[in-house]
């Protein structure tokens, strides 16, 4: 049996029913300590509900979950000492200033008055909020709010952090700042469980990914495993001289035995790659014919394709819903 230090989260058969809607319908999750685990799914897939059950905010209707070996229902108070939760909507007090929020949460975490002030200042500095510390939160941008929210989750330096859609609605620059922060968290020893509907986010950050749809885990594995389960890689070649195109296509047909796709500008050739060994033969053939390449790449299928294949419905409509 694995010890509690190996697994930050172990959940089996989690079920949550709202009315006649099975929001979460038998979810199993295992998150290794020190890793970043991504829960990926469209809106309404049950991601937030799973997080809320693991974070002791919601009682599961069935199933069992532990955090570092502690049961989320029977040892809820212990679990709360081990986790930090950053919600989909910033869980900070809108009427207070950033400093007051951090002071309050520090006090509630058992820090003394002086310690709380020091902690608040330290976190404000760390998250680049010092200049806005005294301002009421009403005037905060979405990114600042998220940063404050994350800062509030880090007061007790919890070994497990839940991030529910940490970058939804953020602009690309703020998003990449958030990603940096998450990476730094992991480097200090935290385990992170994050939900996202952005495939590139899961791809960038997560060591393992669970794809969930309509309350069930439809696929689980590393980003590479998920991609491999869906499709083959493709070989992309860019020619120095576009005039060589026909020769190159002929060479690919004879060596690899596959049909190619040509990009509109016709300088790039894409060919499905079944056997990586044969690529050497192809390259030798191209050299023999004096066809020069400017670029050679192996393209794995994107998570977008994984997502489409696994959930059976598109990503585009989900993105529109977010904007609405």
């Amino acid at each position: 049996m694995a010890t509690s230090s190996d697994w930050a989260v172990e959940a089996t058969g989690l079920v949550k029913i709202f009315g006649d809607n099975r929001a979460v319908d038998g979810v199993d999750l295992r998150v290794r300590t020190g890793s970043v685990y991504g829960v990926l799914g469209p809106n309404g897939a049950g991601k937030t509900t799973v997080i809320r059950m693991l974070a002791t905010l919601l009682r599961p209707d069935a199933g069992h979950a532990t955090v570092f070996g502690h049961d989320v229902q029977h040892e809820a108070q212990i679990v709360r000492q081990l986790i930090g939760v950053t919600g989909q909507y910033a869980s900070v007090d809108e009427t207070l200033s950033a400093t007051e929020n951090l002071m309050l949460f520090s006090r509630l975490n058992g820090l003394g008055r002086a310690e709380s002030r020091a902690k608040a200042n330290e976190l404000l500095e760390e998250f680049g909020l010092t200049a806005a510390a005294k301002r009421p939160l009403k005037n905060f941008s979405g990114g600042m709010r998220r940063r404050l929210d994350l800062a509030a989750s880090l007061i007790s330096q919890p070994p497990l952090i839940f991030l529910d859609e940490p970058t939804t609605g953020l602009d690309p620059r703020t998003r990449s700042q958030m990603w940096d922060t998450i990476r730094r968290l992991v480097s200090t020893g935290s385990t992170v469980l994050l939900t996202t509907q952005y495939l590139d986010e899961a791809d960038q950050l997560a060591d393992r990914i669970a794809v969930i749809d309509t309350g069930r885990v439809v696929a689980e594995g590393t980003a590479d495993e998920l991609k491999a389960s869906v499709g083959k890689s493709s070989l992309q070649l860019r020619l120095l001289d576009p005039a060589d195109r026909d020769d190159a296509v002929r060479a690919i047909r004879s060596v690899l035995g596959v049909d190619v796709t040509l990009s509109p500008e016709a300088a790039r050739i894409t060919a499905p790659m079944q056997d990586p060994d044969r690529i050497t033969d192809l390259l030798v053939a191209l050299r023999e014919q004096n066809i020069s390449l400017t670029e050679l790449a192996v393209q794995k299928p994107t998570l977008d394709e994984v997502f489409l294949t696994l959930t059976g419905h598109g990503v585009e409509t989900e993105k529109e819903e977010v904007n609405a």
């Binding site: 002791t56 905010l57 007090d93 509630l108």
Partner: peptide, 9 residues
């Protein structure tokens, strides 16, 4: 949202 934080502390 702040109540969620209180509950998770």
């Amino acid at each position: 949202g702040v109540f969620d934080r209180f509950k998770s502390l």
